[in-house]
Design a protein around this nucleic acid. Structure first.
Length: 339
DNA sequence: AACTTGGGCAACCGCCGGGAC
DNA sequence: TGTCCCGGCGGTTGCCCAAGT
């Protein structure tokens, strides 16, 4: 018999999240920072289990998440990393700070896997075999296993180096970045502005499809907001205290009423879109860093931006590079001299 | 226009590892 | 040292929607 569920299932709501729930969660995290998920349902009145709250935050509401189509560059990175690391989506996601592991996993399963299978069975089989075939066949050769080990060691070294050099802005994976910001700094408003952007982006679509009041028609609008799902009427489920929480939390942060607050969120979104234009001229790592810190851009110096050797390789479009040459190019020191 | 089917994606489930006690 | 709890992870499911018939 397995371990009991993380929360008792009675009275725990499942299924798509509603706008109200998102707002409650975001405003709670704005106040307390991410973490201690166990306490979140209790303190917010959300009828969700702690795990569900954490998942919603990390996969959807977390600052700096980029949605929409994957770029060619991202696609290549995923293919490379999957060949190297296998289905370790969290590790892969750490190299794509704007994407969640869930997103990458979904993209792999729905797009890339089929694409590669097609290519493998097609005429390009020979050209793509190196580095890609293993991912499709799921078998791991000795060489690949060794490369995976090398990558792990390298990643650990890099993380250690970054941890030991606090004065430098480093390209930490998004999770680490956000967590450190959220938990350590009292001036975390800039960090959470990004989560407000996420909320704003969602709310915009939600309100567009809902000419009535945003707060009075959650049943109909949550369908558009939370990407469909059998959304039972949340307004009928809402307790007075929940409603009070929403307004209370919103007012706590900005001293605004609901519509005003939404407007300010939309203003943030336009800021975001202007950033996205800027970020198109940057490498993904640069732009992700910039987006995460766009309120603090003074600290960012592109010329001093550090990228790991592996990242440099991943950004390199020379697809045909031999992996063994690659590893030697990485100039790994004698401690990782497996080959 | 109505129905079917498959793709895409958010969310859930169950296992695992690490830290606290 | 053993147990419990929490958070992280990867696999899977379920539902919406668009394309096809």
């Amino acid at each position: 018999m397995g371990r009991p569920p993380c929360c008792d299932k009675v009275g725990v709501k499942k299924g798509p999240w509603t706008p109200e729930e998102d707002i409650i969660l975001v405003s709670y995290i704005q106040e307390h920072g991410p973490g201690n998920w166990r306490a979140v349902p209790t303190n917010t009145g959300l009828l969700r289990c702690s795990k569900s709250c954490r998942l919603r935050w990390t996969n959807y509401l977390r600052p700096g998440i980029k949605r929409g189509n994957f770029t060619d560059h991202e696609e290549k990175m995923i293919i490379h990393l999957q060949a190297l690391l296998g289905n370790r989506w969290a590790a892969i996601a750490s190299y794509l700070p704007q994407r969640t592991d869930n997103d990458i996993k979904n993209y792999w399963n729905t797009h890339l896997k089929k694409k590669l299978e097609k290519l493998q069975t097609g005429s390009e089989k020979g050209q793509l075999r190196d580095g890609l075939s293993s991912s499709a066949s799921q078998s791991i050769s000795k060489g690949q296993w060794e490369r995976r080990l090398q990558t792990d060691i390298h990643m650990a070294k890099q993380a250690l180096c970054e941890a030991l050099s606090p004065e430098k802005p480093s390209f930490l994976p998004a999770g680490e970045l956000n967590t450190s910001n959220a938990q350590s700094s009292s001036s975390s408003s800039s960090t959470y502005a990004s989560s407000a952007e996420n909320i704003a982006r969602l709310l915009k679509g939600w309100m567009r499809n809902s000419p009535k009041s945003a707060s009075s028609n959650s049943a109909a609008t949550s369908k558009n907001f939370a990407r469909g799902g059998p959304t039972e009427s949340t307004s009928s489920e809402e307790t007075p205290s929940t409603k009070a929480n929403i307004n209370n939390n919103l007012n706590n942060h900005n001293g605004m009423e609901l519509p005003e607050y939404f407007e300010s969120l939309f203003a943030l979104e336009s800021l975001d879109s202007s950033n996205s234009e800027l970020s198109q001229s940057m490498s993904p790592d640069e732009s992700s860093f910039f987006q995460d810190h766009h309120h603090d851009s003074k600290q960012y110096d592109p010329t001093s931006a550090q990228m790991s050797l592996l990242e440099k390789w991943l950004c390199d479009d020379q697809q045909g590079k031999d992996h063994y040459n690659l590893i030697s190019d990485l100039k790994l020191d004698e401690h990782t001299d497996i080959f």
